[in-house]
Design a protein around this nucleic acid. Sequence first.
DNA 1: GCAATGACTTGGT
DNA 2: CACCAAGCCATTG
Length: 112
Amino acid sequence: MNNPDQTENGEPSLPNRVYTVVASIPEGKVTTYGAIARLAGAIGHARQVGTILSRLPQGSKLPWFRVVNSQGKISLTGPDYIRQKQALLADGIRFTPADRINLKIYGWMTQP
DNA sequence: GCAATGACTTGGT
DNA sequence: CACCAAGCCATTG
């Protein structure tokens, strides 16, 4: 058997652990790819987190838009960039003039 | 098995 | 602040 949602160890797969962490980001807060990797027990796997979020099933209820890069900037481009920014604004998050988010204010579990 | 591919990160210019 | 170079690492073909 090869259940994609579970390792043979019985421990949830990385995608699953990432889903859990993302789902727990409070409204009005944002976090980074690196922080999610750390909270999911996969330090140094920020890139994998990005890949996982890019493959979220359509219609997912996860607040994927509350995830930005370590610079407090949106990593998406084009129309996707616009969508994420709108979602964040609707969440009450304010951007700096340079289109960045102040993680000191809105960051969630960004520091150890 | 090796090379290419990223919704990343850090450090330097 | 903008841009670039390296480092990083699981997933893909």
